[in-house]
Design a protein around this nucleic acid. Structure first.
Lengths: 182, 182
DNA sequence: TAGGCCATGTAACCGGTTACATGATTAG
DNA sequence: CTAATCATGTAACCGGTTACATGGCCTA
């Protein structure tokens, strides 16, 4: 999903500053749709304003940096709904952890253990994040997605904890000769 | 994961042509690590050969296009193992389906239904692909990853089938006034 | 007082995609 | 006879990242 559509999607839920948009698609509730950094957010926002898809207003809280708050125009909302109309692209899932798991035999047991620990911590953090967004949720679509995420992540976590032993058992088995020689 | 490491990873398992590498990381067993197209595979392969991380040999089956088969050198294998050593980046999961689900209220019930159908079909196809790679598997790491994938996808599929009704029920609820006016 | 967070923005760079060029074989 | 699959490669283009510039406030 490109920067334009992603920004439109976020602004469809809540008016935001560039800074908030970035936070939202890095850690927040919108992190499942795409990933963009300041270098593409601010220029895209400027372009969208020229195209009349968003408007901005300045806000100045004393003792805080000035905020430029963007919100979707009716034109922008239409553009977003139009973008939603065509069938979605396939989900993308990319995992370096899976590569480490697949090559566990040629990796050190410590590295494999560390990778598993890290992944468990990541999933737990994500679970906490989703729960936070879902418990006090009043928006049906967001709730459904949140509960979906919680179920899957929970299952993932339990599976990993149950089966991590098996993976650690095969870790380093292709290195034994080499390390014995050292 | 960048093209270089991904290619090294694939060649670590099996010697391949550029064409096969592309297939493997588009549909095959390596599709969970990264996604690259011809435009980056062939030039990267050429660079890797200059760096002595891979070697190539030509193969000519009569009645077939000539194949340039690349394989990892010892230097390349070392480079790959070194790359595996540092802790993996977080898993990345991006889903346009989730955005459609989240915005189901402002989308048409047909589009939502279609998106769900499509996603179920995608997961089923992926499940079939993983099972194919896992049933006759003799490599411990690959088996572990395959079983992991099967479990998660199966759970995902069941959850989706059980809860799709709820999502379809909220689809279009924010459009009723508009469509009534039309 | 150092580091982290809030906040906006720019410019150079680059990795990777898209589209093109080419051509033989096989399946429907 | 057409479409798909196998097969290798190039060049232009571009979306997005990285790194930089700037600066005030708050917390440890």
């Amino acid at each position: 999903m490109n920067a334009k559509t992603l920004i439109l999607a976020i602004l469809n839920f809540q008016e935001s500053t560039g800074y908030e948009i970035r936070k939202n698609c890095t850690d927040g509730a919108f992190s499942y749709f795409g990933d963009i950094s300041y270098g593409s957010i601010y220029p895209t926002l400027a372009k969208l304003e020229v195209e009349l898809l968003v408007t901005s207003r300045m806000e100045q809280d004393p003792g805080k940096p000035e905020r430029k708050i963007y919100s979707l125009t009716e034109l922008g909302r239409g553009e977003f709904i139009k973008a939603l109309a065509h069938p979605p692209a396939k989900d993308k899932f990319k995992s370096e952890f899976l590569l480490i798991a697949m090559t566990a035999e040629t990796n050190t047991p410590e590295a494999v253990k560390h990778a598993i620990d890290l992944r468990i911590a990541d999933i737990e953090a994500e679970l906490a994040m989703i729960k936070e967004h879902t418990t006090d949720c009043d928006h049906a679509g967001t709730c459904w997605v949140g509960e979906y995420g919680i179920s899957i992540k929970q299952f993932d976590l339990e599976y990993l904890k149950k089966k991590r032993g098996e993976l650690q058992a095969i870790a380093g088995t292709a290195l034994t000769m080499k390390s014995a020689a050292e």
